[in-house]
C-alpha cells in the first residue's frame, strides 16, 4: 500500500509538469481558437534562452526577466506576422501556420544558440524525501508548488483584472467582444505573451530534470493526450488531465509493465486518450455550453 501510494504520488507530481505545458495550449486555444503546435518549440526556445544567458554569467532573476521580455517580443512579432494576416482563416490553416512556426522557432533556436545539451541547475536537488513513509522527489514537490502558484495567479488574473475578463469575453464570443470595442490583436499579443511565460516556467522545470535540449519540443506530444482528456478549453481540465496522465502512466509502468515486458509509459497516455475520445470526445471539462433552455 505504501509502495502504491508512493508510485501514485510521484505520478501525480510528474503529471503537474504535463499540466504546465497543457495550460499554455489552453490559453491560446481559448482566446483565439488556435491549436498552437509551436507550444513545444516555445518551451525549448525559452529554456534555451535562459540557460544561454546564465551560462554567460547573467544572474538568475536577470536572465529570467530578460527571457520573459524575449517571449513577449516573440508574441508581438507572431501576432503581427502570422496571426493578423491569417485572422479569419480556417482553424486548419492556423494550425498549419503554427506547425510552420514551430520549425521557424526551432531553427532560430539552433541558429542562435546551437544544439548542445545544457545542464540547468535551479538549485533544487532531485533527492527523494521521506514524508510520512512516502518517498517523494524534492524537485517534484518544488515543481508542484510552482505550478500551483502559477494556476492561482492565472485564476486571479482571469477573474479580477480587466485584461483577464476581456480575455474570457473574447473566449466566449469574439464578435460580441469586438462590438464593445475590445481589440483582438491586443488580446492575442497578451495571451501569446502569457503562454510564452508559462512555456518558460515549464521549460525551466523540464530542463532542470532532463537537460535543456531539442527533445524538449517533444513534450508537445505528451501534452496532446492531456488536452484530449481534459478538454482543450479548460485550465482546470489541463490540470486534471495532466494529473490523470501522470498518475495512470506511472501506475501502469509498475503494474502492467512487467506483464508486457516493456516501458508502458511511452504509450499508455495515448491509449487513455483514445478511450476518452470514444467515451467523452469533448474531454472532462470540454466546452459545455452554459445555457438556459
Amino acid at each position: 500500500m505504501q509502495y502504491f501510494l508512493t508510485i501514485l504520488l510521484s505520478g501525480l507530481l510528474a503529471g503537474v509538469m504535463y499540466a504546465m505545458v497543457a495550460i499554455g495550449f489552453v490559453l491560446i486555444y481559448k482566446a483565439s481558437g488556435v491549436f498552437n503546435f509551436a507550444q513545444g518549440s516555445m518551451v525549448l526556445f525559452a529554456a534555451l534562452t535562459f540557460v544561454t544567458l546564465t551560462e554567460h554569467g547573467v544572474p538568475f532573476w536577470a536572465a529570467f526577466l530578460a527571457t520573459v521580455a524575449v517571449m513577449i517580443a516573440g508574441a508581438v512579432i507572431i501576432e503581427r506576422l502570422v496571426l493578423r494576416p491569417l485572422a479569419d482563416r480556417s482553424p486548419l490553416t492556423l494550425f498549419m501556420a503554427t506547425l510552420g512556426l514551430s520549425f521557424v522557432i526551432e531553427g532560430l533556436a539552433q541558429l542562435l544558440m546551437g544544439t548542445d545539451v545544457h545542464q540547468l541547475d535551479l538549485g533544487i536537488d532531485d533527492l527523494p524525501l521521506d514524508i510520512a513513509g512516502l518517498q517523494l522527489s524534492q524537485f517534484d514537490l518544488f515543481a508542484s508548488a510552482v505550478a500551483i502558484g502559477l494556476v492561482v495567479v492565472l485564476s486571479v488574473v482571469f477573474d479580477r483584472t480587466r485584461i483577464g475578463i476581456a480575455l474570457r469575453a473574447v473566449a466566449d464570443d469574439v464578435l460580441a467582444a469586438q462590438s464593445i470595442g475590445i481589440r483582438l490583436p491586443v488580446i492575442w499579443r497578451i495571451v501569446w505573451s502569457v503562454s510564452g511565460v508559462v512555456a518558460l516556467i515549464a521549460g525551466l522545470l523540464w530542463g532542470a530534470r532532463q537537460g535543456v535540449q531539442f527533445s524538449l519540443t517533444m513534450i508537445v506530444l505528451k501534452a496532446m493526450p492531456v488536452l484530449i482528456i481534459g478538454g482543450f478549453s479548460s485550465i482546470a481540465g489541463a490540470i486534471v488531465g495532466g494529473l490523470l496522465v501522470g498518475a495512470t502512466e506511472s501506475l501502469a509502468d509498475i503494474y502492467i509493465g512487467p506483464l508486457v515486458n516493456g516501458a508502458v509509459s511511452n504509450w499508455f497516455a495515448y491509449i487513455l486518450a483514445v478511450g476518452f475520445l470514444l467515451i467523452r470526445p469533448s474531454g472532462l471539462f470540454g466546452d459545455r455550453t452554459i445555457e438556459r433552455v
Binding site: 480587466r162 475578463i165 476581456a166 474570457r168 469575453a169 473566449a171 466566449d172 464570443d173 464578435l175 460580441a176 467582444a177 462590438s179 464593445i180 470595442g181 475590445i182 455550453t289 452554459i290 445555457e291
Partner: peptide, 22 residues
C-alpha cells in the same frame, strides 16, 4: 448584436463592466 450574445461564462456584472473597458 442580434441574439444578445452575452458572455455566457462571465457573471452578469463582468459582462456589463467589460463594456466599459474601451
Amino acid at each position: 448584436l442580434e441574439g444578445r450574445r452575452c458572455f455566457a461564462h462571465l457573471t452578469v456584472e463582468q459582462n456589463i463592466v467589460a463594456g466599459g473597458y474601451a
